[in-house]
Design a protein around this nucleic acid. Structure first.
Lengths: 386, 386
DNA sequence: CCAGTCCGGTTTTACGTATAACTAGAGACG
DNA sequence: CGTCTCTAGTTATACGTAAAACCGGACTGG
């Protein structure tokens, strides 16, 4: 078990090659026991800043400067030294670290600890403000806890990546995934990582912990509001996306209207853009038969498009047509009239998701959460029959 | 060079402790050479799924199953085996890897290679659609190249983090930073990482490569458009943010108007929200003196607020007041009338930033880029004097 | 028939850290 | 005075991978 005398361990003062290489002793190539790979002339990034300049100081460098062992440096930097290292020594380690600009190599730490304090957030698109807010909430909690957040880079136009983990190069402790990122789910489960699902069918979430919004209740509130205003002829302008998030809204709406006799409901689908919403609403408002008096949209973007369509057709909102949105994006109060919509606590979804993941990582079990949503009545709804 | 028979290397079939621990032979503590830390009962995540279940297969496990050495596995998985390993052997390695669900441990790979193929993107807030689009562009290029993107988690409300690298736990090869994330810049430079700056003052970018939008030209186009329509009394509704991004717009606007005699320009500042824009515009439109005929906003959100303010004051847009935005967010075509604004190629900024970073990583030098912007005339501007 | 070359691998090592296990020396205490 | 404890450290090792160096055997050319 005793190591040979030619040890090259950093603590050895009379070491042959650690700092000696630079002192002009031009050793013939291939003579030493083994060259460092980084010393090769063909290496990429480190080489362009000079041979060793820019190489980050390691804990051993700090140890040498402070006159202690590498283990002591690790203890001090990891704040694990209360009662194991004297105040004086800890101070000298800290000042040595500062003077060398030492930062622990996280790759090494991650390898050693087997965890990374990094979570992956899988969402369909950050340009959707809802998910940007989910990220914000998740990142806030993560920052408090010293956890990093990586996004599954599934920007529009990239197409479904084969392996979510291949692109998110960081190693991961756990995953928070929106049910809308359906293509990635299979690969995620295969990964075997702790998983928290956002807004996913509780029936099919299996082992995963879930954080859901009470979307059914939101839609019931919308229906109740419009029914109370006397509306009976409805169009549901639904998202053209096959996801539980939207299926549950449609089901809840149909169910809520079923209770009141004399109601009519037709469904029109459109992708989630203003232009598509405009087109779909225009179609729904111009087809033969009695005109609907209320148009219930799956999100605020569609509602904005609907308002434009109404105006284009000479209909006043809300007097001739009531319109409701969903999500309460900033868009909802940017348009005029301001949208009646359902406020979704998006940041809380992210926060709850991150907390749930931390609970799972701590050994769970974590109870599923169902966050309440709230109808916000603004200017696009009024009594029927204007 | 022959190894002792008590080798515990993965290739050895008759190993003593790798799987043996679970077979009921209760070895007195402290007897073996050294216990694996993970075997301790107090360990966190791995323990809740059983002793070794869930432990990921390593390249040595694959090697054992395939009947080759770990090095061969590494060669095959790294696609570096052309001419070094036979097709047959490579196949058997691959099938062994598949059957074990092997995925290379990225922490180990990162440590070994000294690079991570991960870049940090520093932006002020993803809920600003512009930056969400910058991310999208950057992530697209990154995905093509097998590079991961980590965001600097500076969501609103977290406050300036001390150390951008502490929260972005992944180790990084380089950084792309928006000049608007000013607080983080000092720490970023200290980090000594390759740096690409987005929309930053070329004078102060120092060594960093820059990717800029030609914002000055954008503002000149706005001014030219409005001057040609006969406007002379302007208000600049400026962002309440001290950043080069906005300073350059203000300077370009003032400069452009200086050339035409008889012009008036006053500046009002507001945070970048609809409500603040509304308040500021209301103030600008109701103060004593001749009313301005054109209100030039630093971004579309402010412009939307301005339109609401105008309507509230009984002014028609664009007949009584011309309004221009900036950015061409999706909001610009959601409101009515649609905003005349300056289209910024946000995704291209992200793409160019990522490409520039890759160039720097490959040894640069990389030429700075200046991306053109384009005035989009829509419905909120018309001839003066309605 | 022998040196050289190529093929298809294996052995060994280093990356930088965290931590279990050990230890030297100083005091305390019976 | 021997032993026990406490303090303040050190030593040694493993995490999983990539890759440089090595190596046995088959083939080849002169």
């Amino acid at each position: 078990m005793t190591r040979p005398v030619t040890s090259t361990d950093g603590n050895d003062e009379a070491q042959g090659e650690h700092g000696g290489q630079a002192e002009g002793t031009a050793v013939p190539a291939g003579t030493g026991p083994r060259e460092r790979p980084e010393a090769a002339p063909g290496s990429r990034w480190p080489s362009i800043r000079g041979p060793r300049t820019g190489a980050r100081a390691t804990s051993r460098d700090v140890a040498r400067v402070a006159g202690v062992s590498q283990a002591t440096v690790s203890l001090v930097m990891g704040e694990k030294w209360r009662g194991r290292v004297s105040e004086r020594t800890a101070d000298s380690v800290r000042s040595a670290a500062r003077s060398l600009g030492y930062r622990p190599n996280l790759a090494a730490r991650n390898l050693r600890l087997g965890r990374t304090r990094t979570a992956l957030l899988v969402v369909p698109a950050l340009t959707n403000e809802f998910f940007a807010r989910v990220y914000t909430g998740a990142a806030r909690v993560a920052a408090e806890q010293g956890i990093g957040v990586v996004l599954y880079p599934s920007p529009e136009g990239v197409g479904p990546a084969r392996d979510p983990f291949a692109s998110a190069r960081a190693t991961l402790d756990g995953v928070i995934a929106s049910s809308m990122a359906a293509e990635a789910l299979a690969a995620l489960r295969e990964g075997g990582l702790p998983l928290v699902m956002l807004d996913s069918d509780p029936e099919r979430a299996e082992a995963a912990t879930t954080v859901n919004l009470d979307l059914a209740d939101g839609m019931r509130q919308v229906a109740g509001h419009l029914l109370a205003l006397g509306h009976r002829r409805f169009v549901h302008l639904a998202a053209d996306i096959d996801s539980w998030t939207f299926r549950v809204r449609a089901a809840a709406l149909a169910e809520a209207l079923r209770g009141t006799p004399g109601t009519e409901l037709s469904v029109v689908r459109a992708p989630l853009t203003v232009a598509d919403g405009l087109r779909a609403a225009e179609h729904a408002l111009t087809r033969p038969g009695p005109r609907p008096t209320a148009l219930i949209c799956d999100d605020d973007v569609l509602a904005a498009g609907t308002c434009k369509a109404a105006r284009r057709l000479g209909l006043r909102v809300p007097d001739d047509l009531s319109v409701t949105g969903f999500d309460d994006l900033s868009l909802a109060t940017a348009v005029e009239p301001e949208l009646t919509t359902v406020r979704l606590p998006a940041e809380e979804v992210g926060e709850a998701g991150m907390r749930a993941l931390m609970g799972v990582l701590d050994g769970g079990p974590v109870a599923p959460r169902l966050l309440p949503v709230e109808l916000v009545v603004r200017g696009t709804t009024t009594v029927a029959g204007g």
